[in-house]
Computed example of a mutant assay.
Amino acid sequence: MSTVSVIVPCYKYGHYLQESVGSALNHQDGVDVRVLIIDDASPDDSADKARALAAEDPRVQVLVHPRNKGHIATYNEGLLEWAEGDYVALLSADDRLTPGALSRAAALLDAHPEVGFCYGHPVRFQHGSALPAARTAGRGWTVWDGQWWLRRHFETGHGCITSPEVVVRTKLQRQVGGYDPGLPHSGDIEMWMRLAAHADVGYLRGVDQAYYRVHGANMSTTDFGGQLDDLRQRKAAFEAVLGRCGEQMKDRDELDRLVHRKLARQALRRAVRAYDRGRTEQVPVDELVGFARECWPEHEDLPEYRALKMRRRIGTKAMPYLQPLVLTAVTHKVRERMWWRTWRRTGI
């Protein structure tokens, strides 16, 4: 029977612990699960709630920090110093696993020793709302070559994983090391790519592996200033992977160009949308353009920059009203180019 170590870092989230820890221990048939709750010096009664859970179930251990160490140090303490199972999962105290999540992940990792970590679909739910139903009858799995998976993410410039849906081979986790303290907000993106540079990646199809709670305390942000921060953090994560895993990565220089060009385009798209939605006073347009220039010195040759130039000429007040006409003209021009290219290639 495979063993799974589950680390539950907690800071002022003691009121969620029973649900979170219970989801890791219950309805996970065929795997031997051990849970470590690490309370990072919470100023409330979170540590007491953690100790109460440990008193009820010998599979639960508790570690309480006398001083706050921060989330990265807490993660690494559990992953690198405590985890002893075949596989390890990091589960935030406010998130949950779905029934059978660890069983399904362990089955995939047991069957494919070349896979370093696996994940599935996370179900997002709003804090305070009812828990949605989860799909627990999967349709098998897919195993991707780690280098292929890496390239796909460098092409998109995004991370695709929230975190609680991931199960990692413990031996590989120790090999690649812990989370980077220099990436407090994008360390998870860097970690998945670092793992993929050393091993293949598994995906559980047609099944929900975790519940991710959405509330005001989430570390991610979607406000206008946060959009620029998000881009900067992703840039730092990709650059860290390039620096740390360059020798393991095929076509490193090409991947470097791919991701920096993509991030520049994403920044310029956000600047364009600010004009389209009449939000140039709230969105840091100049900073977004500066970020694009930093990523891609030839940013003025990108189509998004040309679109931004046109919107600047039209002006911030008129653009929201003229947007439908502009989009229609752009769509017509794109179709015309596609037709011309097809004609040149086929003569039809």
Rank of each mutant, 00 (worst) to 15 (best):
A318Q: 06
R313L: 14
R335V: 09
F291P: 00
V326I: 14
K309V: 09
L327Q: 09
M319L: 07
H299F: 14
P297T: 15
H332G: 14
L308A: 02
W296A: 12
A292N: 10
R335M: 15
T342D: 07
Q323G: 01
V326G: 00
L322N: 02
R313M: 09
E300I: 07
R311I: 06
W339Y: 10
R306P: 00
C295D: 09
R335W: 14
W340G: 13
F291M: 06
T331C: 08
Y321D: 06
T328K: 15
V326Y: 00
A292D: 08
Q323M: 11
K309H: 07
K317N: 01
E336M: 12
W296G: 00
K317G: 00
R341Q: 08
K309Y: 03
D301V: 04
F291V: 01
L322K: 03
T316S: 08
P303A: 10
W340H: 14
P320T: 02
W343T: 08
R344S: 10
R293Y: 03
R311L: 14
A329I: 02
W296S: 08
E300V: 10
I314N: 08
F291G: 01
C295Q: 12
A329P: 01
P324D: 07
K317D: 03
W339S: 09
L322F: 04
Y305I: 02
R341V: 11
E298I: 02
R337C: 12
E298K: 13
R341K: 15
K333Y: 04
G290Q: 12
V326D: 03
A329M: 01
E304A: 09
H299T: 10
R335Q: 14
R306I: 03
T328M: 15
Y321M: 13
E336H: 15
T342Q: 13
V326M: 04
F291K: 01
W339D: 12
M319R: 06
T342A: 13
R313E: 05
V334N: 13
L327A: 13
A318D: 04
L308M: 06
G315P: 09
